[in-house]
């Protein structure tokens, strides 16, 4: 009996191909780009903001700006690098706005994070994760924004030193310096969380 092998799955279209289709008015291409990068964009934004609604705002803002200003992108870096640069900048803007709002509305700013109100019956593991997230948020918040952005793009955006340098328009040496300082500081701040 002849063995019929399934035809190979078609290769996923490249980002460039999707961007060309999008430029030609294909909204399905926009949907594919969104699905492809929404998770990493959200991870970066969340680490910079620590709140899901704020992170989703930054992701939305980042996608809109990245797609509306493709003329400035011109393929000098990857679309992911371009997008994460804009998302991280949008996240820092949201963070600054939130800080300004907290000056005007201190009660709202002091509200506990969404996961803090979960019932005690929730799984211990989830509580541990939420606790760890809070510890990480607090530690990251103590880094200067430039160090925080560099560190988060490298660790959560899974970008190489070169990609981070391209995204932020800084030298590799500055990336190395910021990452080194950020790690040393985070190590101190999270000393009780980092296994010996």
């Amino acid at each position: 009996m002849p063995v019929v092998s399934a035809p190979p799955a078609p290769a996923a279209p490249s980002d460039d191909a999707l961007l060309e289709r999008f430029a030609a008015g294909d909204t399905a291409a926009l949907g594919e780009l969104f699905r492809r990068y929404r998770a990493v964009a959200y991870r970066v934004a969340y680490r910079l903001l620590g709140r899901e609604p704020d992170a989703l705002d930054a992701v939305q803002d980042g996608f809109v700006k990245a797609l509306l200003h493709l003329g400035k992108f011109r393929g000098k870096s990857s679309f992911k690098t371009w997008l994460l640069r804009i998302v991280s900048n949008a996240a820092l803007d949201v963070g600054r706005q939130r800080k300004r709002d907290s000056w005007n509305h201190p009660a709202a700013a002091a509200a506990p994070p969404a996961h803090a109100g979960k019932p005690e019956t929730a799984a211990d593991a989830e509580l541990d994760r939420a606790d760890l997230r809070r510890a990480i948020d607090a530690a990251l918040a103590q880094l200067p924004p430039a160090q925080r952005q560099t560190f988060v793009l490298h660790v959560d955006g899974e970008m190489s030193y070169r990609e981070v340098a391209d995204a932020l328009g800084i030298s590799i040496g500055t990336v190395m310096s910021r990452l080194c300082y950020a790690r040393q500081k985070l190590k101190t701040l999270l000393a009780d969380r980092v296994a010996p």
Partner: peptide
Amino acid sequence: ELSPENWRLWQSAEPPAP
């Protein structure tokens, strides 16, 4: 040791999925 420890710490505290 510093780098992988931070990475493991990060991975065990993934942001909540929307």
